[in-house]
Amino acid sequence: MITSSTDRAAPAAPPTTHDAPRRLRVLLVEHDAADAATIAGYFGDCAECRSTGDVERVSRMAQACERLARLRFDVVLFDLSLPDGRGLAGVATLVAAAPDVPVVVMAEAADDALAVAAVKAGAQDYLTKRQDDGRVVRHAVRHAIERQRLRREREGLLVREREARAAAERATRVRDEVLGMVSHDLRSPLTAIAVSGNALLDGSGDPSVLASAIVRSSEWALRIIRDLLDVTAIEAGGLTIHREPMTAQAITEMLWSMFAPSAAGAGVTLVVERTESALWVDADVDRVVQAVGNLVGNAIKFTPRGGRVSLAVSRGDNAVRFRVEDTGCGIAPENMPRLFDRFWQAHETGRGGAGLGLVIAQGIAEGHGGRIEVESRPGVGSTFTFVLPEQP
């Protein structure tokens, strides 16, 4: 069947079974009506081949581009002598209009040099009008479609290969980064353990003091390892949350007992503001203590001697909010988007630690359906709020 571009577009063919060939949709870009009728006849019902199809004919390049933009065709047959087709430049135009549709060019006479140039311009094949018969044309169309399919598959494979290589390179960089951080951060506690252990062996120190140093250093190393495992679980979506009822006051008291000694040692005043009434939360208490503890620990670390860190808890907007405020150095606006990047702290601030605390705190908040809010003014201080939604 042949239609012109002024006819109503035929609807897409319905799904077919293996017993019936799918009809091809052929866009014939041909200005000569007689040649168009001949070529269209090649795609009538043909018992010995599967290249039966519907042919839509246009006589101008602009019409061809418009139809390709609106409809899906299996192949384009393009007459190189089209008045406004601009010869081989027209091939590039058609390929640009529909990159996934193969183009087969048709010329008045056989010309090897022209055929090579046409293929270089993007055509899949070259036919000679009035010399190549229906069998040759159908064969060229079938192979053009198949070559285009293989080209798409090859390009898809190349894209996936590039993506896989990029992912592998990223993984290698992360691995090297992790190994570098682990070796750096574990060196201090392991060195302390080795020194204390040797002192115990040669009897050069107080055994109880040395044993305490070994225990503290072991706990330090275990915290580093736990942080790395937690980040891995968070990024894999495997962080487990075990909810239990607990008062927010009990959580803040645990945090006070954990951080009061380190705050005092740093010369920082740690204040826990008391709540007037009991606020109950249904959450993984250990994880909440870990997350808010990371915020408190960071606040102490980045607050100069003589400064102040406060921890307050309140209820509002159907959530319990743990607010950690400090009088530290603050965060530059350009660094705010990077706060929750892995290892950023260690790379950019020169402070101790692997820079995983905020990543873990954010993962724990999100694991509870919550979030972390940040406000900061350079030279004034920062406020981090762990927002824990109330459970119905």
Score class of each variant (00 low, 15 high):
89 A>L: 11
88 L>G: 09
352 G>Q: 10
43 F>H: 05
341 D>Q: 13
349 T>K: 04
339 L>C: 00
260 A>C: 00
220 W>D: 15
24 L>M: 09
205 G>P: 01
370 G>D: 07
38 T>F: 13
389 P>G: 04
157 L>T: 10
264 A>R: 12
304 P>G: 07
269 T>Q: 13
392 P>C: 01
193 I>M: 15
143 H>E: 14
312 A>V: 00
358 L>C: 01
338 R>K: 13
146 E>W: 11
364 I>S: 06
300 I>T: 02
8 R>S: 11
230 D>W: 08
213 A>V: 13
8 R>G: 00
313 V>E: 01
46 C>S: 11
35 D>Y: 00
238 G>H: 12
360 I>H: 07
307 G>S: 06
162 R>C: 04
107 A>F: 01
178 V>E: 14
20 A>P: 00
219 E>K: 04
181 M>T: 14
229 L>G: 07
226 R>E: 15
275 T>M: 05
65 C>Q: 15
247 T>W: 00
188 S>F: 10
209 V>P: 00
56 E>L: 15
90 G>Q: 04
24 L>T: 05
96 A>I: 02
169 E>A: 14
352 G>A: 15
152 R>E: 14
135 R>M: 10
153 E>S: 11
244 E>T: 13
300 I>A: 01
249 Q>D: 14
248 A>Y: 03
47 A>P: 10
202 D>P: 09
202 D>V: 11
272 V>Y: 05
121 A>V: 04
61 M>E: 02
116 V>R: 13
330 G>R: 04
71 L>C: 13
4 S>Y: 13
298 N>T: 05
80 L>P: 05
115 A>Q: 07
350 G>W: 02
288 V>E: 02
322 F>T: 05
110 A>S: 04
172 T>D: 13
387 V>A: 05
34 A>W: 13
377 R>K: 13
289 V>N: 01
176 D>T: 10
85 G>W: 03
209 V>H: 05
43 F>L: 07
140 A>R: 08
254 M>H: 07
347 H>K: 15
91 V>Q: 04
359 V>F: 05
223 R>I: 00
346 A>V: 03
369 G>N: 06
82 L>S: 05
194 A>G: 03
266 A>Y: 04
19 D>R: 14
167 A>Q: 14
340 F>R: 06
152 R>W: 01
209 V>W: 02
386 F>D: 05
378 P>E: 08
99 P>D: 10
356 L>A: 07
86 R>S: 10
166 A>Y: 08
206 D>L: 00
274 R>W: 01
58 V>Y: 07
372 I>H: 02
289 V>M: 02
105 V>N: 02
